[in-house]
């Protein structure tokens, strides 16, 4: 009796264990799948909010009218880059309504007439701590606008602006692929993307790794590109720390 009972118990116990194991595995998979769905699907949608631009802007049309990017996005006399045009620049041409579009009417009535700057959302705006010189890249290294800004110059409408709810910066900085993959140089504008291009431009530089927490690319490629080897940077550009100079790009 007891043996049978024991046996019977043993059998039913095994089955229960198998069943239990399957259940646990199932729940593991469920949890795994759910988090994948949240992480890859829900999270990006929650992280960004879509904000409408004040009105639409047709880059292609303007490009045809003025001929090039530099007419509006120019270098000032002191070499600094003007970025997004100010209202004063626009009104050089747009003192009155120039076309028949609704956007033109909004622009002239809401901004030109009221002398308010247009509060554009800027896709390429980097965090305030980033120092970036357009002159070094466009004038000296002769890079095209497209390498970083893509084909915005030929677009007829502004794409929706997706603002990161935590940082307040555009989704364009991290890139539209939440995994961080990119196909074009202009798909992402994080520090590693700076480093990647600098590595290509400068080639591999054999030098002793400096202590620090910045990425390998950055230490070995970006800094030597900025500081030639015959300068102090070869052993770390900061006199105080003997490390590479973060302040070259970080304000």
């Amino acid at each position: 009796m007891s043996t049978k009972d024991d046996h019977g118990h043993a059998v039913s116990g095994d089955t229960a264990d198998k069943k239990g194991g399957a259940t646990i595995l199932l729940f593991f998979i469920l949890g795994f799948a759910a988090s994948l769905a949240i992480g890859w699907g829900v999270f990006p949608k929650l992280l960004y909010s879509t904000k409408p631009q004040p009105f639409n802007f047709d880059h292609a049309l303007h490009n045809r009218e003025v001929g090039d990017c530099e007419s509006c996005h120019f270098f000032r006399e002191d070499g600094t880059f003007s970025g997004v045009p100010t209202l004063a620049q626009c009104t050089d041409c747009h003192a009155d309504v120039m076309g028949e579009t609704e956007d033109e009417a909004i622009f002239v009535n809401e901004y030109v007439a009221k002398e308010r700057e247009v509060p554009w959302y800027v896709y390429s705006r980097q965090p305030d701590c980033v120092f970036f010189s357009h002159a070094a890249h466009v004038v000296k290294a002769k890079m095209t606008c497209e390498s970083c800004h893509g084909d915005i110059g030929t677009s007829t409408s502004l794409k929706p602006y997706q603002e990161n709810r935590i940082t307040g910066y555009s989704r364009d900085i991290w890139g539209y692929s939440i995994a961080g993959f990119k196909t074009h140089t202009y798909d992402r504008m994080k520090m590693d993307d700076c480093a990647e291009c600098h590595e290509k431009a400068v080639g591999s530089v054999d030098r002793a790794p400096a202590p620090g927490v910045v990425s390998r690319h950055f230490r070995q490629e970006v800094v030597p590109a900025i500081y030639p080897l015959d300068r102090q940077a070869a052993t770390g550009s900061s006199v105080q720390t003997r490390r590479d100079a973060c302040f070259v790009c970080h304000k």
Partner: peptide, 22 residues
């Protein structure tokens, strides 16, 4: 046990999503 398993699965799954890193 299944609840814990769900949570562990969730944690493991989260680690292979961009969520924590982003």
């Amino acid at each position: 046990r299944s609840f814990l398993s769900f949570v562990i699965g969730g944690a493991a799954g989260t680690a292979v999503t961009p969520l924590p890193w982003k």
